[in-house]
Amino acid sequence: MTLQMVPYMLTFLLLVAGLYAIVAKRNLVKVIVGILILDYAANLLLVLTGYRTPPAGQAPVAPILTGGAAQAQELAATAVDPIPQALVLTSIVIGLSVAALVVALAVRLYEKYGTFDTELMRNLKG
């Protein structure tokens, strides 16, 4: 296990933390929090796989052309991968809309039962 694999491992731990909250917590707000954390971890894992180490002493190069067409060859040799970024860009907004939908469901359930606790809801015979 080299140091180069440690970021992936930490992201996996974040993913497991989110999954744990979804599975084991009984409060609906905690479940929403777990969904959000799972979302962040999955996005991070994708972006991490596309990172390319910049030349020594420089900052990472974003795949955006700032110096005109003459710079394109240099950019192609140093920039990070644009594909995971494009995938994650849609994924972030989808995560937001899904979170909004889940929040709407939680608010509806609170109005009906007066609690966020799923086990209490079950006891109230919904």
């Binding site: 929403i32 972006v47 994650v88 907004v93 995560g95 979170a99 909004a100 929040v103 966020f116």
Partner: peptide, 30 residues
């Protein structure tokens, strides 16, 4: 990691999520 597009989107999305969640939680004590 060299992804300014994602950074901009994530900041704004986070603000919206935080506003909505705080609004939901702050009036409903459980």
């Amino acid at each position: 990691l060299g992804a300014p597009d994602l950074a901009i989107t994530q900041v704004v999305v986070e603000i919206l999520v935080l506003v909505v969640l705080v609004r939901v939680v702050i009036t409903r004590r459980d």
